[in-house]
Design a protein around this nucleic acid. Structure first.
Lengths: 205, 205
DNA sequence: GGATTTAGATACATGAATGTAGCTAATCGC
DNA sequence: GCGATTAGCTACATTCATGTATCTAAATCC
């Protein structure tokens, strides 16, 4: 009877990854507010004692999991296709937002206890370049190449795409289709940088 | 010894209002996920039994409280001042979002258990015209009067202002200043309806 | 003023999560 | 191989929320 334990004993990195996965699944199911050490431990199939050896409460586990997430893919502006690159950037954002990590971030941001537990530094590390830099990268690229006036690339303008996608996600709870993303680009972002659907100045005609 | 109880006994409307107030305070402090009958009862200084007589769980209490909130003030377009009316509409929205009810809605929307408990109808009643119709009312008014082409007032365009204000609230956690609201109107909304800062077609020059 | 309704004050059994402790045994480093 | 580390297991006292039940007494209706 050498194998009364079904699975080889996990340790170090492997175990921690399992716990990180567990907490991300758990938070999507019950919300950041109802996270418990017990629930995480059960889902990760590990004793609670293992959790207490490393973290002091469920939110710590969650933040740690997010901290160790692989960074999201960055939008990489390629050919001379501003419109297409913007749509692709927003698609990347949607993808991230629907991932376990993205959903976890959403619940954290409206949970008072979680927010209180986050240091500035952690906030920076976890959220920077995720909810806010998808279209900015693309816009900066084309502004630098003179496709539109740099002074139009204000903080507000850089946020338009992300803001509208976020609102849609909250309102409908479902992923925006490619047509939705195109509409956002054509009707909100491009006009803001002086490039209406029919080209510069088209709105006048 | 007729007053061994410090306060006159509350009943009916008065008691219910106290409970509604309590649950709204409670949810802002602990989040929708950590709401408990116990916590609400303590804050309202009433026995738990009183709560169970009317509601079956904490989320029900919260939804009921929101359901009975007085509706928000509606933006009322007045003089011929599209820009000013848009800014005022967004200011109304910020005001609402920072109120107890607004904060409660924010936590509810990212709490899986709460969302699951909301029927379509209740959702409609509680959230309609709150997160989404501040600038739309104004824009519709001026579109009808021919100040800009009606076909430019798409669902996406009607969402721009609310989306950007929401994003700011989430990102910074603080209320946008009037300059911030002006920037949103000038740099995002007006361009989208063909009215750039310098008037129609200005982006071309 | 008497009957009805309903808040307020217990009390209690149950279940869940907490945080700690002690032991066993698998895995790793040398 | 041997010692150090660290999962895994079990137990336990504590705290908190739950849901129900019972009784008292204040407010209201007629």
């Amino acid at each position: 009877m050498s194998d009364h334990s079904a699975r080889a004993r996990r340790r170090g990195e492997e175990l921690i990854r399992a716990i990180h996965d567990a907490v991300l699944e758990e938070v999507v199911e019950v919300g950041a507010g109802r996270l418990t050490m017990d629930g995480i431990a059960r889902r990760a199939a590990t004793p609670r004692t293992t959790l207490y050896r490393r973290w002091s409460d469920p939110i710590e586990v969650l933040l740690d999991a997010l901290y160790h997430q692989h960074p999201v893919e960055e939008p990489t502006p390629g050919a001379d296709d501003l419109r297409g690159d913007l749509i692709r950037a927003l698609r990347l954002m949607v993808e991230w937002a629907l991932s376990p990590a993205g959903r976890a971030v959403a619940t954290i941001l409206t949970d008072p206890k979680s927010v209180a537990l986050m240091s500035e530094a952690l906030f920076e590390r976890v959220f920077a370049n995720r909810g806010g830099t998808f279209t900015r990268t693309v816009l900066q690229h084309y502004a630098d190449r003179g496709r539109f006036p740099v002074e139009l690339l204000t903080p507000v303008v850089a946020d338009i795409g992300e803001a509208l996608v976020t609102k849609r996600l909250i309102d409908t709870g479902t992923a925006p289709s490619d047509e939705d993303l195109s509409a956002i680009v054509d009707q909100a972002i491009l006009p803001a940088i002086g490039l209406g659907p029919g080209g510069p100045g088209a709105a006048r005609a």
